[in-house]
């Protein structure tokens, strides 16, 4: 399937620079590093837990660049009042993970 990723190139650039600023190790950010950033959004912890659940596609407890972009995308949408989905819609799955 060839659906464009909902994360736009300019958003991806922004998320990538946040990713890099958090000091990824081996291209991955651990939960310890991502958690304070998501908590900064002031969203309820149960919402953030779901954001993590949806973003950590391989369930390894760490986020790579694309997974992190999904997390940030969901957080930004949630801040705009959009509900966080219960499961990840196909357009939100990074092309590298399909």
């Amino acid at each position: 399937i060839d659906i464009p990723w909902v994360v736009k190139p300019e958003e991806k650039m922004k998320f990538d620079s946040i990713f890099e600023s958090l000091g990824p190790v081996g291209g991955m950010l651990t939960g310890d590093k991502v958690k304070p950033v998501l908590l900064n959004s002031k969203l309820p912890v149960d919402i953030l837990g779901r954001v993590w659940e949806l973003s950590d596609l391989d369930r390894d407890g760490m986020l790579d660049k694309d997974e992190f972009s999904v997390a940030m995308y969901l957080v930004y949408r949630a801040l705009e009042g959009e509900p966080v989905p219960m499961s990840l819609p196909p357009p939100l799955v990074p092309p590298s993970k399909r």
């Binding site: 939960g31 958690k35 837990g49 993590w52 659940e53 950590d56 369930r59």
Partner: peptide, 13 residues
């Protein structure tokens, strides 16, 4: 690293 039980990979649980 994370507490046992539930989703151990989720830092928010």
């Amino acid at each position: 690293q994370y507490p046992a039980g539930g989703s151990s990979t989720n830092p928010f649980l």
